[in-house]
Computed example of a mutant assay.
Amino acid sequence: MKLITNNLIKVVGWSLFLLAIGSFGLQMGYLFVHERFQIEYIDNRLFYMINIFCIICLALAILLLLRLNKRSKIIGTSVTGIIIIAHVVLLIDSNQEIKNITSISPNFKHVLSIKENTENGNAIYYRSYYGILARPKERLPHETVGEYKVEWLANDAAAVTYKAADNTIQQFVGTYGDRGTGRSYYYVGAEMHGQWDGENVEVISNTAGISVTENGDTELFDWDNIHQFGTLAIVLKKHNEAVWTISLNENFEVHPTASDSTVGNISLYKATMEENEPIILWDAGTGSLSQ
Protein backbone atom coordinates (compact mmCIF):
# COMPACT_ATOMS: atom_id res chain seq x y z
CA MET A 1 0.00 0.00 0.00
CA LYS A 2 2.83 2.36 0.92
CA LEU A 3 4.60 1.52 -2.34
CA ILE A 4 1.47 2.36 -4.34
CA THR A 5 1.14 5.67 -2.48
CA ASN A 6 4.78 6.55 -3.14
CA ASN A 7 4.41 5.72 -6.82
CA LEU A 8 1.28 7.87 -7.04
CA ILE A 9 3.09 10.78 -5.39
CA LYS A 10 5.92 10.44 -7.90
CA VAL A 11 3.50 10.36 -10.84
CA VAL A 12 1.71 13.47 -9.60
CA GLY A 13 5.01 15.19 -8.84
CA TRP A 14 6.49 14.51 -12.27
CA SER A 15 3.21 15.53 -13.92
CA LEU A 16 3.31 18.85 -12.10
CA PHE A 17 6.95 19.29 -13.06
CA LEU A 18 6.13 18.68 -16.73
CA LEU A 19 3.27 21.20 -16.50
CA ALA A 20 5.71 23.73 -15.05
CA ILE A 21 8.21 23.07 -17.86
CA GLY A 22 5.42 23.32 -20.44
CA SER A 23 4.21 26.63 -19.00
CA PHE A 24 7.76 27.98 -18.98
CA GLY A 25 8.23 26.90 -22.60
CA LEU A 26 4.95 28.58 -23.55
CA GLN A 27 6.10 31.84 -21.99
CA MET A 28 9.47 31.69 -23.75
CA GLY A 29 7.72 31.03 -27.05
CA TYR A 30 5.35 33.91 -26.42
CA LEU A 31 8.20 36.33 -25.70
CA PHE A 32 9.84 35.31 -28.98
CA VAL A 33 6.76 35.71 -31.21
CA HIS A 34 5.77 38.90 -29.38
CA GLU A 35 9.12 40.47 -30.15
CA ARG A 36 9.32 39.09 -33.68
CA PHE A 37 5.73 39.32 -34.94
CA GLN A 38 3.98 41.77 -32.55
CA ILE A 39 1.70 38.99 -31.31
CA GLU A 40 0.15 39.36 -27.87
CA TYR A 41 -1.93 37.31 -25.50
CA ILE A 42 -5.59 37.92 -26.17
CA ASP A 43 -5.75 39.24 -22.60
CA ASN A 44 -2.58 40.73 -21.10
CA ARG A 45 -3.42 39.25 -17.70
CA LEU A 46 -2.79 35.77 -19.11
CA PHE A 47 0.96 36.39 -18.96
CA TYR A 48 0.89 36.73 -15.18
CA MET A 49 -1.69 33.96 -14.72
CA ILE A 50 0.49 31.49 -16.62
CA ASN A 51 3.50 32.55 -14.55
CA ILE A 52 1.55 31.94 -11.34
CA PHE A 53 0.41 28.54 -12.63
CA CYS A 54 4.00 27.63 -13.51
CA ILE A 55 5.30 28.67 -10.08
CA ILE A 56 2.60 26.70 -8.23
CA CYS A 57 3.21 23.57 -10.31
CA LEU A 58 6.97 23.80 -9.80
CA ALA A 59 6.66 24.37 -6.05
CA LEU A 60 4.28 21.43 -5.60
CA ALA A 61 6.49 19.22 -7.77
CA ILE A 62 9.52 20.00 -5.60
CA LEU A 63 7.56 19.25 -2.42
CA LEU A 64 6.39 15.91 -3.79
CA LEU A 65 9.61 14.74 -5.45
CA LEU A 66 12.27 15.92 -3.00
CA ARG A 67 12.69 15.03 0.63
CA LEU A 68 12.91 18.42 2.30
CA ASN A 69 13.28 19.17 5.98
CA LYS A 70 10.82 21.41 7.77
CA ARG A 71 13.02 24.50 7.51
CA SER A 72 13.45 24.09 3.74
CA LYS A 73 9.71 23.64 3.29
CA ILE A 74 8.97 26.83 5.23
CA ILE A 75 11.53 28.82 3.23
CA GLY A 76 10.31 27.38 -0.08
CA THR A 77 6.66 28.07 0.74
CA SER A 78 7.48 31.63 1.82
CA VAL A 79 9.45 32.36 -1.35
CA THR A 80 6.68 30.88 -3.50
CA GLY A 81 4.07 32.98 -1.70
CA ILE A 82 6.09 36.17 -2.16
CA ILE A 83 6.56 35.51 -5.89
CA ILE A 84 2.85 34.78 -6.36
CA ILE A 85 1.83 37.94 -4.47
CA ALA A 86 4.25 39.97 -6.60
CA HIS A 87 2.67 38.58 -9.77
CA VAL A 88 -0.84 39.33 -8.51
CA VAL A 89 0.22 42.94 -7.85
CA LEU A 90 1.76 43.17 -11.33
CA LEU A 91 -1.41 41.69 -12.85
CA ILE A 92 -3.62 44.29 -11.16
CA ASP A 93 -1.23 47.12 -12.04
CA SER A 94 -1.06 45.97 -15.67
CA ASN A 95 -4.84 46.04 -16.03
CA GLN A 96 -4.93 49.58 -14.65
CA GLU A 97 -2.59 50.73 -17.42
CA ILE A 98 -4.09 48.64 -20.23
CA LYS A 99 -7.71 47.76 -19.59
CA ASN A 100 -8.61 44.37 -21.08
CA ILE A 101 -12.15 43.83 -22.35
CA THR A 102 -12.49 40.13 -23.11
CA SER A 103 -15.63 38.17 -23.92
CA ILE A 104 -16.06 34.59 -25.14
CA SER A 105 -18.78 33.73 -27.65
CA PRO A 106 -21.73 31.57 -26.50
CA ASN A 107 -20.37 28.58 -28.46
CA PHE A 108 -16.83 29.14 -27.07
CA LYS A 109 -15.34 29.39 -30.58
CA HIS A 110 -14.49 33.09 -30.68
CA VAL A 111 -13.03 35.64 -28.28
CA LEU A 112 -13.69 39.36 -28.45
CA SER A 113 -10.62 41.28 -27.29
CA ILE A 114 -10.27 45.04 -26.87
CA LYS A 115 -7.36 46.67 -25.07
CA GLU A 116 -7.76 50.24 -23.92
CA ASN A 117 -4.93 52.55 -22.92
CA THR A 118 -6.45 54.09 -19.80
CA GLU A 119 -4.19 57.14 -20.02
CA ASN A 120 -5.29 58.41 -23.44
CA GLY A 121 -8.50 56.44 -24.05
CA ASN A 122 -7.24 54.77 -27.23
CA ALA A 123 -8.75 51.31 -27.65
CA ILE A 124 -7.49 48.62 -30.03
CA TYR A 125 -9.56 45.69 -31.27
CA TYR A 126 -7.57 42.44 -31.40
CA ARG A 127 -8.36 39.51 -33.64
CA SER A 128 -7.64 36.03 -32.31
CA TYR A 129 -5.85 33.93 -34.89
CA TYR A 130 -3.87 31.56 -32.69
CA GLY A 131 -6.12 30.47 -29.82
CA ILE A 132 -5.00 32.54 -26.83
CA LEU A 133 -2.77 34.69 -29.05
CA ALA A 134 -3.95 37.67 -31.07
CA ARG A 135 -2.80 40.53 -33.25
CA PRO A 136 -4.11 44.11 -33.33
CA LYS A 137 -6.65 44.58 -36.12
CA GLU A 138 -8.02 48.10 -35.84
CA ARG A 139 -8.39 51.07 -33.55
CA LEU A 140 -11.82 52.00 -32.29
CA PRO A 141 -12.73 55.28 -34.01
CA HIS A 142 -13.52 57.20 -30.81
CA GLU A 143 -11.58 57.76 -27.61
CA THR A 144 -13.34 55.90 -24.84
CA VAL A 145 -14.33 56.71 -21.28
CA GLY A 146 -15.97 54.52 -18.68
CA GLU A 147 -17.21 50.98 -19.05
CA TYR A 148 -17.92 48.76 -22.04
CA LYS A 149 -21.02 46.66 -22.60
CA VAL A 150 -20.67 43.52 -24.72
CA GLU A 151 -23.60 41.63 -26.23
CA TRP A 152 -23.19 38.64 -28.54
CA LEU A 153 -25.87 39.08 -31.21
CA ALA A 154 -24.88 35.72 -32.68
CA ASN A 155 -22.16 33.17 -32.07
CA ASP A 156 -19.97 35.13 -34.49
CA ALA A 157 -21.00 38.76 -33.90
CA ALA A 158 -20.40 40.78 -30.73
CA ALA A 159 -21.72 44.33 -30.27
CA VAL A 160 -19.63 46.56 -28.02
CA THR A 161 -21.38 49.64 -26.66
CA TYR A 162 -19.30 52.34 -25.02
CA LYS A 163 -19.27 56.01 -24.12
CA ALA A 164 -16.87 58.18 -26.09
CA ALA A 165 -14.84 61.13 -24.83
CA ASP A 166 -17.22 63.53 -26.62
CA ASN A 167 -20.08 62.17 -24.45
CA THR A 168 -21.69 60.23 -27.31
CA ILE A 169 -22.73 56.58 -27.28
CA GLN A 170 -20.88 54.49 -29.85
CA GLN A 171 -21.07 50.89 -30.99
CA PHE A 172 -18.41 48.65 -32.46
CA VAL A 173 -19.12 45.15 -33.77
CA GLY A 174 -16.57 42.36 -33.79
CA THR A 175 -17.47 39.85 -36.51
CA TYR A 176 -16.06 36.37 -36.99
CA GLY A 177 -18.19 34.75 -39.67
CA ASP A 178 -20.07 35.06 -42.93
CA ARG A 179 -23.56 34.35 -44.23
CA GLY A 180 -22.53 33.69 -47.81
CA THR A 181 -19.89 31.51 -49.40
CA GLY A 182 -17.07 33.38 -47.68
CA ARG A 183 -15.52 34.20 -51.04
CA SER A 184 -17.00 37.63 -51.69
CA TYR A 185 -17.94 40.82 -49.88
CA TYR A 186 -21.56 41.88 -49.68
CA TYR A 187 -23.52 44.73 -48.12
CA VAL A 188 -25.72 43.92 -45.15
CA GLY A 189 -28.18 46.70 -45.94
CA ALA A 190 -28.69 45.43 -49.47
CA GLU A 191 -29.09 41.82 -48.38
CA MET A 192 -31.82 42.73 -45.88
CA HIS A 193 -33.79 44.88 -48.33
CA GLY A 194 -37.51 44.98 -47.67
CA GLN A 195 -39.62 45.13 -44.53
CA TRP A 196 -38.82 43.39 -41.25
CA ASP A 197 -41.18 43.08 -38.30
CA GLY A 198 -40.66 42.44 -34.61
CA GLU A 199 -42.33 43.13 -31.29
CA ASN A 200 -43.42 46.81 -31.52
CA VAL A 201 -40.66 47.36 -34.10
CA GLU A 202 -40.52 47.65 -37.87
CA VAL A 203 -37.42 48.02 -40.04
CA ILE A 204 -37.47 48.90 -43.74
CA SER A 205 -34.40 48.85 -45.98
CA ASN A 206 -34.69 50.54 -49.37
CA THR A 207 -32.86 52.94 -51.67
CA ALA A 208 -33.43 55.89 -49.30
CA GLY A 209 -31.72 54.12 -46.42
CA ILE A 210 -32.96 52.17 -43.43
CA SER A 211 -35.91 53.31 -41.34
CA VAL A 212 -36.64 52.02 -37.86
CA THR A 213 -40.11 52.36 -36.35
CA GLU A 214 -40.35 51.76 -32.61
CA ASN A 215 -43.67 52.15 -30.81
CA GLY A 216 -45.00 54.25 -33.68
CA ASP A 217 -42.00 56.62 -33.94
CA THR A 218 -40.07 56.36 -37.22
CA GLU A 219 -36.48 57.42 -37.81
CA LEU A 220 -34.75 57.26 -41.20
CA PHE A 221 -31.00 56.67 -41.50
CA ASP A 222 -29.55 57.46 -44.91
CA TRP A 223 -26.75 55.32 -46.28
CA ASP A 224 -24.09 57.90 -45.40
CA ASN A 225 -24.89 57.33 -41.72
CA ILE A 226 -24.76 53.54 -41.87
CA HIS A 227 -21.43 51.89 -41.06
CA GLN A 228 -20.79 48.23 -41.85
CA PHE A 229 -18.66 45.84 -39.80
CA GLY A 230 -17.40 42.80 -41.65
CA THR A 231 -20.24 41.13 -43.53
CA LEU A 232 -22.52 40.55 -40.55
CA ALA A 233 -23.57 43.85 -39.02
CA ILE A 234 -24.24 47.54 -39.55
CA VAL A 235 -24.50 50.44 -37.12
CA LEU A 236 -27.08 53.16 -37.75
CA LYS A 237 -25.94 56.62 -36.67
CA LYS A 238 -27.57 59.98 -36.10
CA HIS A 239 -25.52 63.13 -35.39
CA ASN A 240 -22.36 61.01 -35.21
CA GLU A 241 -23.84 58.85 -32.45
CA ALA A 242 -24.81 55.19 -32.65
CA VAL A 243 -28.54 54.56 -32.39
CA TRP A 244 -29.04 50.96 -33.54
CA THR A 245 -27.05 47.92 -34.59
CA ILE A 246 -28.51 45.44 -37.05
CA SER A 247 -26.93 42.01 -37.48
CA LEU A 248 -27.67 39.01 -39.66
CA ASN A 249 -28.66 36.02 -37.56
CA GLU A 250 -26.98 32.67 -38.06
CA ASN A 251 -29.97 31.33 -40.00
CA PHE A 252 -29.77 34.20 -42.50
CA GLU A 253 -28.81 33.10 -46.01
CA VAL A 254 -27.10 35.41 -48.48
CA HIS A 255 -28.11 34.50 -52.03
CA PRO A 256 -26.08 35.17 -55.16
CA THR A 257 -29.05 36.75 -56.95
CA ALA A 258 -31.45 39.38 -55.67
CA SER A 259 -34.44 37.47 -57.06
CA ASP A 260 -34.06 34.71 -54.47
CA SER A 261 -36.43 34.94 -51.51
CA THR A 262 -35.04 36.04 -48.14
CA VAL A 263 -34.34 33.26 -45.65
CA GLY A 264 -33.54 33.86 -42.00
CA ASN A 265 -33.84 36.55 -39.35
CA ILE A 266 -32.03 39.70 -38.33
CA SER A 267 -31.45 41.24 -34.90
CA LEU A 268 -31.99 44.87 -33.92
CA TYR A 269 -30.01 46.12 -30.93
CA LYS A 270 -30.36 49.58 -29.41
CA ALA A 271 -27.25 51.61 -28.55
CA THR A 272 -27.56 52.28 -24.84
CA MET A 273 -25.41 51.68 -21.78
CA GLU A 274 -28.47 50.36 -19.96
CA GLU A 275 -29.19 46.64 -19.94
CA ASN A 276 -31.20 45.59 -22.98
CA GLU A 277 -31.71 42.61 -25.24
CA PRO A 278 -31.55 42.38 -29.04
CA ILE A 279 -34.89 42.20 -30.83
CA ILE A 280 -35.29 39.41 -33.37
CA LEU A 281 -37.02 40.48 -36.58
CA TRP A 282 -38.54 38.41 -39.36
CA ASP A 283 -39.11 39.17 -43.01
CA ALA A 284 -42.60 40.65 -43.37
CA GLY A 285 -43.08 38.48 -46.45
CA THR A 286 -42.79 35.27 -44.42
CA GLY A 287 -44.74 36.53 -41.43
CA SER A 288 -42.89 34.43 -38.84
CA LEU A 289 -39.51 33.62 -37.34
CA SER A 290 -37.36 31.30 -39.44
CA GLN A 291 -36.09 28.11 -37.89
Rank of each mutant, 00 (worst) to 15 (best):
Tyr186Met: 14
Asn265Gly: 02
Thr257Phe: 13
Ala242Trp: 06
Thr245Asn: 07
Ala158Pro: 05
Thr272Asn: 04
Ile42Thr: 15
Ile101Met: 08
Trp282Leu: 02
Glu219His: 11
Leu66Val: 09
Arg183Pro: 00
Glu241Lys: 10
Ile279Ser: 09
Asn215Leu: 08
Lys73Gly: 03
Asp224Cys: 04
Val188Ala: 05
Glu274Asp: 14
Asn117Met: 13
Ile39Lys: 02
Gln96Trp: 14
Ala157Cys: 14
Ile246Met: 03
Leu60Cys: 10
Phe172Asp: 06
Asn69His: 09
Thr118His: 04
Asn167Glu: 15
Tyr126Asp: 05
Ile4Thr: 09
Ser23Phe: 09
Ser78Asn: 04
Val235Asp: 01
Leu220Ile: 08
Phe53Tyr: 11
Ile50Met: 10
Lys238Ala: 03
Leu236Asp: 01
Tyr126Pro: 03
Val188Gln: 03
Ile42Cys: 03
Met1Pro: 02
Ile98Asp: 08
Glu138Pro: 00
Ile104Lys: 05
Ala61Trp: 01
Gln96Glu: 08
Met192Leu: 15
Trp196Thr: 03
Ala61Asp: 02
Leu140Asp: 02
Val254Cys: 09
Leu3Val: 14
Leu46Ser: 00
Leu232Ala: 03
Glu138Ser: 13
Tyr129Glu: 04
His87Gly: 02
Ser290Trp: 14
Leu16Met: 13
Ser23Arg: 05
Thr207Lys: 12
Leu65Thr: 03
Pro278Trp: 09
Ile75Phe: 09
Gly285Gln: 11
Ser105Arg: 03
Ile82His: 02
Val11Tyr: 10
Asn44Ala: 07
Phe47Val: 09
Trp244Cys: 02
Phe17Pro: 00
Thr175Trp: 00
Phe47Ser: 05
Ala154Gly: 11
Gly287Phe: 12
Leu112Asn: 00
